Amino acid sequence: MKVLDLQCGQHHVFEGWFGSEEDFQSQLARGLVTCPMCGDASVTKKLSAPRLNLSTTRGEPETAARAASNSVDRVGSHQADTAPASTPASPTLPSLQEVANLEPAQLQAALLKMVRHVVANTENVGSSFPEEARKMHYGEAEQRNIRGHATPEETEELIDEGIAVMPLPLPDALKEPLQ
C-alpha cells in the first residue's frame, strides 16, 4: 500500500492510498483522483518522506497532528442549544483569532470534519429544500435537520420569511458514501 501526499490546483492538500505507483498514475490519467475539498482533478504528488512508526511508549510530547485533531474536534463537535440535558457539554468553538492562527491543513481538516458531520446528521431533501424548510417553519411538518438545493432567490425569500438557512458548499466526494 502506498500512501501519497497530494495537492490539487487550488492548493488543497490531501492523502491518497494506492496499491502501487502504477495504480496512482493509472487512476490519475483516467481522472479518477480528485480533491475531496473541491473536486479538482488537476492533482499533483507532493514530496514526502517515508513514515517511520516508532514506539509510542516513550512519553513523547504532544505532536502537531494531535494538536490539530484537538482543534478539529472543537470545531466539528459543536451541538445546538436544544441538546438534551443528558448530552455532555459541548466544547466551545474557537475564537476568530484561534481560527486565523490555524495552519491551512488544520483548517481544511476542520472543514471536512464539519461537512461530514452535517452530511451524516441531515436528511437530503434535494431541490424541495425551500418547501420543506417552510413546512417546518410554519409547523406543517416535523422539525428535523435537512439539507438541499435552493437558488439565491429562494434563499433570500426564506431569509425574508425569518427562516434561518446557511449555504454550505459540499465537495462531490462527500455527497456519497466513500468505499
Rank of each mutant, 00 (worst) to 15 (best):
L168Y: 02
A120R: 04
H137N: 11
V118C: 09
G148N: 05
K175R: 15
I146H: 02
R134G: 10
E154S: 05
G148F: 12
E156I: 07
E140M: 15
E123H: 09
K175E: 14
N124V: 13
A120P: 04
A173T: 14
P152A: 10
I163P: 01
A141E: 05
E131K: 15
R144F: 11
P152Y: 03
E132W: 11
M136V: 13
A173W: 07
E142A: 15
E157M: 13
I146W: 01
A120H: 04
V165R: 01
T155M: 12
A133K: 00
P152K: 06
G139A: 10
H149L: 15
N121C: 11
L168T: 02
E140P: 06
A173H: 07
G139E: 09
N145S: 15
R134Q: 04
E161F: 11
V125F: 04
H117W: 13
I146M: 06
G162W: 02
H149I: 15
H149Y: 13
E123Q: 11
I146G: 04
E161K: 06
A150F: 06
E161A: 15
H117Y: 13
H137T: 07
T155G: 08
K135D: 15
K135C: 12
V125S: 03
K175A: 13
E131W: 12
E140I: 10
T122N: 10
E154W: 03
L174N: 00
P171M: 03
E157F: 10
S127H: 09
D172F: 13
L174S: 02
A141L: 12
M166F: 11
K175M: 14
A120G: 08
A173K: 09
K175D: 13
V118S: 02
M136W: 05
I163K: 01
E154P: 03
R144E: 13
V165Y: 00
L168V: 07
P167R: 02
T122C: 15
E161W: 06
L168K: 01
I159M: 03
G126F: 10
K135I: 09
A120I: 06
E176Y: 10
E123Y: 04
F129W: 00
I159Y: 03
E176M: 11
G148M: 12
Y138K: 07
T155P: 03
L170Y: 04
G139Q: 07
M136Y: 05
E157P: 03
E176S: 12
E161S: 11
A150E: 01
S127A: 15
I163T: 01
E154H: 03
G162D: 01
H149A: 14
G139K: 07
L170A: 04
V119H: 02
M166L: 12
M136C: 12
